[in-house]
């Protein structure tokens, strides 16, 4: 019963935010901002070239195993870097806090 209530709370919260987002995304007043925000897709002007830069690739419906490593690397690399940087910042922050604490204790002892 309790789990059902909790699930419903999460569901309604998700639904509420989704409706709000959908309303913003489709509202007339937001369209100029959206047009400005979303990069224009290729197609027009320039032409030429086999691969055509810019626009996003269309994904095929079938899996392509050759992307297993390169595709995962694109996700894992920035994620690992974020984890690494945050852990280092946390450690140095804790170290400064510890040294400050020690200094304060020493000062108290001296006085």
């Amino acid at each position: 019963m309790r789990t059902l209530y909790q699930t419903l709370v999460i569901f309604f919260l998700t639904l509420l935010l989704s409706v709000a987002l959908y309303a913003i995304g489709t509202a007339e007043w937001s369209q100029p901002y959206i047009e400005e925000m979303v990069p224009a897709r290729g197609g027009g002007g320039g032409g030429g070239g086999g691969q055509g830069g810019g626009g996003h690739n269309h994904f095929s419906e079938a899996p392509s195993p050759e992307y297993a490593f390169s595709g995962s690397f694109k996700t894992l690399f920035p994620m690992t870097m974020t984890i690494f940087v945050v852990i280092i910042i946390q450690k140095s922050f804790k170290q400064t806090q510890d040294t400050q604490k020690m200094r304060r204790k020493l000062k108290e002892r001296d006085s």
Partner: peptide, 16 residues
């Protein structure tokens, strides 16, 4: 699941 799902080229659209 997140790592696999982020790799749309690998999974293809249906699995994604």
């Amino acid at each position: 699941a997140f790592i696999i799902d982020m790799n749309v080229h690998f999974t293809g659209l249906v699995i994604h």
